[in-house]
């Protein structure tokens, strides 16, 4: 099936473009939180799309690829959450464009206790 393979390859290509955009975002964004926003999320979507595309090309692989997608979907948000929480606790500087930071007050309260 030639057409199915080309569809799969195109999905993989779209995924790889998202990975590239993730890399671009991580370079261009001004502070850590925005880097997480642009970097990790885009590359997560890119990875999932690429794996699904490879699964379309090789239908026998789809089960194992689904396990990988499941792992990526569970682990990735957790790791970016852990890092952003640690960075905020440590007092990482935020960009000048920042509008509001409502977490600081509640965190100061816990520190005093």
């Amino acid at each position: 099936m030639e057409i199915r393979e080309i569809i799969g390859a195109s999905v993989t290509l779209v995924g790889s473009i998202f990975i590239f955009l993730g890399g671009l975002g991580i370079v261009r964004m001004p502070d850590l939180f925005n880097r997480i926003q642009a970097g990790t999320k885009a590359s997560t979507l890119g990875t999932i799309l690429s794996l699904i595309g490879l699964g379309i090309i090789n239908p026998a692989w789809i089960w194992k690829l689904l396990v990988i997608v499941f792992f990526v979907l569970i682990t990735n948000p957790v790791s970016s959450n852990v890092i952003s929480r640690a960075a905020h606790f440590r007092g990482t500087k935020m960009t000048d464009k920042t509008v509001a930071d409502l977490l600081v007050e509640s965190e100061n309260k816990t520190r005093e206790e």
Binding site: F71, I74, T75, V78, N81, V82, R85, F89
Partner: peptide, 18 residues
């Protein structure tokens, strides 16, 4: 030690058996 966030704790109960 600083307490872990609830997200990591729940995720670990899901991930550890896996």
């Amino acid at each position: 030690l600083r307490k872990t966030s609830e997200i990591l704790e729940t995720a670990s109960t899901l991930l550890v058996p896996t």
